[in-house]
């Protein structure tokens, strides 16, 4: 599955904005990303398995918060830093 990452996360992926992740749920794909890119998951998901305040996850065009959300092989996952700051 294709996973798109905003610039906030690309220090973990050697600058790549899109990587491949494996899994049948969002949680499984995030676990696979953590195996490939250690440290990435905790910057996006807190210790209670919640999305951090300024991080958004989309499956295709739908915003999701439940990490148990099932995924199809044809889905695309977008992990984004939200607009905020100053």
């Amino acid at each position: 599955m294709r996973v798109f990452l905003s610039t906030h996360f690309q220090s973990y992926t050697s600058g790549k904005g899109a990587v491949e992740g494996r899994g049948t749920t969002v949680a499984e794909v995030l676990a696979d990303l953590e195996r490939q890119f250690p440290g990435l998951r905790f910057r996006a998901i807190d210790e209670q398995d919640h999305l951090r305040r300024h991080v958004k996850l989309y499956v295709n065009l739908t915003s999701i918060e439940d990490l148990a959300t099932p995924l199809n092989a044809s889905d695309e996952l977008h992990l984004l830093g939200a607009l905020s700051g100053g």
Partner: peptide
Amino acid sequence: RTGHLGPT
């Protein structure tokens, strides 16, 4: 940390 990402 950053404004968007978790602490490390």
